[in-house]
Design a protein around this nucleic acid. Structure first.
Lengths: 192, 192
DNA sequence: AAAAAACCGTGACATACATCACATCCATTT
DNA sequence: AAATGGATGTGATGTATGTCACGGTTTTTT
């Protein structure tokens, strides 16, 4: 059950078996069926979550009812409302399963414990957050400076399987356009 | 010369005087005059930089010659092309002084040393990057889901002094519109 | 199997923003 | 003090994308 997490952790840090055995005691396994929510906007984000299997999304809903996707949480990724997790403030994001998923949850207090007891995990998370920051900065700059078509192609390049796994209207909301615009974009692309 | 850095570090971690004395030996002080570059796109980002005084910006230039600002680096902030700094790959960003500035530079190897020798710094940087990630995610979601006017107001709210310190066309490129659009926005706002 | 809901495409029209062009104003340099 | 370049404002026009409306198809639920 913890093999995948162990593997991912080992990719960035060296960790003893004892340390990982200790870490295992802090996680809560959970299965989440498709369309079920792990977190709803307004409630505090109690857990940060490692996705062993399946697919999640974190997203907001604006005044007009439009959804805006922050992140797809694929196998091997971590998902949370980071601000809410760290501060206990109400979350800004919803987190929902897009497929039947298997998750490992950890609370803030367990997480703090883990970072204190096993400094290597501090480095693991620092690296994780670092890579996430780099990716988010690139996505931000792309959103500011490129067209919807370029952003769509970039997404397909970064996640080739994504369009088989999630509906088009979510892809649209990830790249920041309406479903109609993405639909027209796609038909242009196949014709031209 | 290191008082400000010391103060900022102390805001998030507990650090002994010996540890900070050690840290001081790893930094390179540098003054950078207005309009001078700390980093140009294409060259590796050798340093990550603490801004003691002054103001920097990191930005890209696209095919059409338009600039897009990733970050304003104000007093107490860190600035770098993180990806290039970590990997040694050519940088995607330029970094330029917008005011006469006083900086503390640290190389990748010194930084690695610092993180190994003083684990508290690992936590300091993890926290720093974490906060940066949260802010960048918010800016990204704002860029996807709100109008230029809302983004402009948000910027003024977050950095009330910014419009006295940097020209309007840079503010425009930060929020992702042309200088003409921002100009029209501003005249609408004062009239209405 | 039937019903309901989600998904996707497409036309007509509206709008926010970009682009291009020109004028003025201000600051920095020599 | 003159000169150069940077910065800002504003008009005319173009374009990408949003909004609203409808229909057909597929998937999920009961």
């Amino acid at each position: 059950m913890f093999e995948f997490l162990h593997q991912k952790v080992n990719e960035t840090i060296n960790i003893t078996d004892e340390e990982f055995e200790y870490a295992k005691t802090l996680f809560i396994p959970k299965k989440l069926r498709k369309k079920r929510f792990l977190l709803e906007e307004g409630e505090p984000c109690v857990y940060t979550t490692f996705v062993e299997k399946g697919l999640l999304r974190s997203f907001t809903v604006d005044d007009k009812g439009n959804e805006h996707i922050l992140q797809f949480g694929m196998e091997g990724w971590w998902v949370a409302d980071l601000y809410s997790f760290l501060t206990g403030e109400p979350s800004e994001y919803n987190i929902e399963a897009l497929e039947d998923s298997e998750l490992l949850l950890i609370t803030k207090s367990s997480w703090d414990l883990l970072l204190d007891e096993v400094p290597a995990f501090e480095r693991y998370f620092r690296t994780l957050i670092q890579n996430n920051l780099i990716a988010t900065q690139r996505r931000l700059m792309g959103t500011i400076s490129t067209t919807a078509e370029e952003r769509y192609n970039k997404l397909l390049q970064d996640f080739p399987r994504i369009s088989q796994r999630v509906p088009q209207h979510m892809i649209a909301s990830y790249i920041g356009v309406t479903r109609e615009t993405l639909s027209r974009l796609r038909s242009q692309m196949t014709s031209g």
